[in-house]
Protein backbone atom coordinates (compact mmCIF):
# COMPACT_ATOMS: atom_id res chain seq x y z
CA UNK A 1 0.00 0.00 0.00
CA UNK A 2 2.78 2.41 0.89
CA UNK A 3 5.18 2.39 -2.00
CA UNK A 4 8.66 3.82 -2.21
CA UNK A 5 8.24 7.08 -4.03
CA UNK A 6 11.80 7.05 -5.37
CA UNK A 7 11.08 4.06 -7.57
CA UNK A 8 8.67 6.15 -9.55
CA UNK A 9 10.92 9.01 -10.61
CA UNK A 10 12.65 8.23 -13.88
CA UNK A 11 16.44 8.57 -13.73
CA UNK A 12 16.39 9.80 -10.18
CA UNK A 13 19.74 8.13 -9.53
CA UNK A 14 21.32 10.63 -11.92
CA UNK A 15 20.11 13.70 -10.03
CA UNK A 16 22.80 13.52 -7.39
CA UNK A 17 25.62 13.13 -9.93
CA UNK A 18 24.16 15.87 -12.12
CA UNK A 19 23.92 18.20 -9.13
CA UNK A 20 27.52 17.69 -8.16
CA UNK A 21 28.72 18.11 -11.75
CA UNK A 22 26.84 21.38 -12.21
CA UNK A 23 28.15 22.60 -8.89
CA UNK A 24 31.78 21.82 -9.63
CA UNK A 25 31.62 23.18 -13.18
CA UNK A 26 30.21 26.49 -12.00
CA UNK A 27 32.48 26.69 -8.99
CA UNK A 28 35.66 25.86 -10.89
CA UNK A 29 34.79 28.28 -13.70
CA UNK A 30 34.16 31.05 -11.24
CA UNK A 31 37.45 30.41 -9.42
CA UNK A 32 39.42 30.52 -12.67
CA UNK A 33 37.61 33.70 -13.59
CA UNK A 34 38.38 35.36 -10.27
CA UNK A 35 42.04 34.41 -10.25
CA UNK A 36 42.66 35.75 -13.74
CA UNK A 37 41.62 39.27 -12.73
CA UNK A 38 44.38 41.89 -12.64
CA UNK A 39 45.49 43.58 -9.45
CA UNK A 40 45.16 47.24 -10.45
CA UNK A 41 41.51 46.67 -11.27
CA UNK A 42 40.93 44.76 -8.04
CA UNK A 43 42.53 47.50 -5.97
CA UNK A 44 40.49 50.18 -7.68
CA UNK A 45 37.25 48.32 -7.10
CA UNK A 46 38.11 47.48 -3.48
CA UNK A 47 38.42 51.20 -2.74
CA UNK A 48 35.18 52.13 -4.52
CA UNK A 49 33.12 52.83 -1.35
CA UNK A 50 35.81 55.24 -0.16
CA UNK A 51 35.18 57.71 -2.97
CA UNK A 52 33.72 60.94 -1.58
CA UNK A 53 30.06 61.79 -2.19
CA UNK A 54 30.77 65.10 -3.86
CA UNK A 55 32.11 66.89 -5.68
CA UNK A 56 34.04 64.34 -7.68
CA UNK A 57 35.00 66.42 -10.64
CA UNK A 58 38.57 65.36 -11.17
CA UNK A 59 38.77 63.25 -14.30
CA UNK A 60 41.40 61.18 -12.54
CA UNK A 61 38.99 60.40 -9.70
CA UNK A 62 35.99 59.63 -11.85
CA UNK A 63 37.56 57.96 -14.81
CA UNK A 64 35.95 54.82 -16.04
CA UNK A 65 37.64 51.62 -16.84
Amino acid sequence: MIRNVLEHIGGIERYGILSILIFFACYAGMLVWAFLLKKPYLHRMAAKPLEPDSPATSPEETRHE
Binding site: A34, A46, L50
Partner: peptide, 15 residues
Protein backbone atom coordinates in the same frame (compact mmCIF):
# COMPACT_ATOMS: atom_id res chain seq x y z
CA UNK B 1 34.94 50.10 4.25
CA UNK B 2 33.15 53.44 4.70
CA UNK B 3 33.19 53.29 8.49
CA UNK B 4 36.73 51.92 8.76
CA UNK B 5 38.05 54.04 5.89
CA UNK B 6 39.79 51.00 4.52
CA UNK B 7 39.31 49.33 1.12
CA UNK B 8 37.79 45.86 1.00
CA UNK B 9 40.42 43.31 2.01
CA UNK B 10 40.13 41.23 -1.15
CA UNK B 11 37.93 42.16 -4.04
CA UNK B 12 38.79 38.83 -5.65
CA UNK B 13 37.46 37.05 -2.58
CA UNK B 14 34.29 39.11 -2.79
CA UNK B 15 33.71 37.80 -6.34
Amino acid sequence: PKASERPVFSYRLSI
